[in-house]
């Protein structure tokens, strides 16, 4: 039964996450709240692992979540659900490829869809910041603020915008900072 649930949940992600990469993030974020299969900070860890290991984030999450809920079989069924919509839809699209691209309805739909995806991912980004620089569930916002994490954030963000290095570079720096400063 858990196999079927994993399969169906990741089928939904495979069907509705458009634009690749981070577009799976809003779905995964909601999944963590819905079933408690993983926590939001585990999701952040997973993004870091995904950026530092081979393969797409969505597939990595499917493997990770599947393993934690139902072992290797869970990983398999989560991945199966994730890729099945791609397989079917892309093969159908291949039959009338040129017409699909030029269709104005399709183009209009994407003009509306793209900013919505950006909005959804921005919402996740805000949650990720909250998790990264606030500790625990302290209702007093200022009291829960983790000063060391805030300092790291204030250094990290401009660095990324200025230097444009590979994500692994920043992840490594942040890990070292975390260990040294006992974050």
């Amino acid at each position: 039964m858990i196999y079927l649930l994993l399969f169906l949940e990741f089928l939904k992600i495979g069907l509705f996450a458009i634009g690749g990469g981070l577009s799976t993030l809003p779905f995964l974020y909601q999944l963590s709240g819905k079933y408690g299969w993983f926590s939001t900070s585990e999701l952040t860890n997973m993004i870091a692992i995904s950026e530092s290991t081979p393969g797409p984030l969505g597939a990595n999450m499917a493997t990770y979540v599947g393993y934690h809920t139902a072992g290797i079989g869970g990983s398999f069924f989560a991945n199966l659900g994730l890729v099945l919509p791609s397989l079917i839809i892309v093969i159908i699209i291949c039959q009338f490829l040129s017409r699909f691209n030029e269709n104005t309805k399709v183009q209009n739909a994407f003009n509306g869809l793209r900013p919505a995806v950006v909005g959804l991912i921005t919402a996740v980004a805000i949650s990720l910041i909250r998790i990264a620089i606030f500790t625990g569930s302290n209702s007093d916002l200022l009291g829960a603020l983790d000063i060391k994490a805030l300092v790291l954030f204030a250094i990290m963000l401009p660095m990324i915008f200025i230097f444009k290095r590979h994500p692994v570079f920043y992840i490594a720096i942040a890990a070292v900072f975390g260990i040294i400063c006992k974050l």
């Binding site: 981070l22 860890n45 991912i121 921005t122 954030f153 920043y170 942040a174 975390g178 260990i179 400063c181």
Partner: peptide
């Protein structure tokens, strides 16, 4: 501790990606 630091990096990286997507 390492992962606590990494989470800050990830949040920053996601902001950077979102910024690129926003412009497009």
């Amino acid at each position: 501790s390492a992962f606590a630091g990494i989470r800050v990096a990830v949040a920053s990286l996601v902001i950077y990606s979102v910024y690129g997507m926003f412009k497009k």
